Simulated scan of single mutants.
Amino acid sequence: MKFMCLVIVDQTLADKMQPEDWAVMGEQSQAYDNSLIERGAYVHAEALQGAETARTVRVRDGDAMITDGPFAESKEIIGGFILVDVVDIDAAMEIAKNIPMARLGAIEVRPVMTF
Rank of each mutant, 00 (worst) to 15 (best):
V84F: 01
M113T: 11
T53F: 12
M65A: 13
V59F: 13
I78N: 05
I66H: 06
A31F: 12
D85C: 04
Q18K: 15
D88E: 06
P70H: 06
N34F: 04
M113K: 12
K2T: 01
F81V: 01
D61K: 15
G79D: 06
A31K: 11
V24Y: 06
M17P: 10
T56Q: 05
A51S: 14
Q18W: 13
K75W: 03
G62C: 14
V43D: 00
D33I: 06
H44S: 06
G26N: 14
S74R: 08
G80H: 01
G69Y: 08
I95H: 00
V43W: 00
L6V: 09
P100I: 03
Q49Y: 14
A45D: 05
H44D: 09
D63Y: 15
G80Y: 00
D63R: 15
K16H: 14
I78A: 12
M101R: 04
Y42R: 10
Q18T: 15
V112S: 06
D90T: 07
I89N: 03
G50E: 13
F115V: 06
F71Y: 09
V87G: 06
E46T: 05
K16S: 14
A47Y: 04
K16A: 15
A64E: 10
I77P: 07
D33Q: 03
V57W: 15
V57S: 15
D61T: 13
C5A: 07
M4L: 10
M1R: 03
A31C: 11
G79Y: 01
G69C: 08
I82A: 03
Y42W: 13
H44Q: 04
Q30R: 12
K75Q: 11
V59H: 10
T56M: 05
I107G: 00
Q18R: 15
P70D: 09
T67V: 10
V109C: 03
M4H: 04
A41F: 09
M17C: 13
K75M: 01
G105N: 02
I8W: 00
I95S: 00
M93L: 10
V84M: 00
S35D: 12
D90V: 10
V7R: 04
A72G: 02
D61Y: 14
S74V: 07
V112Y: 03
D68G: 09
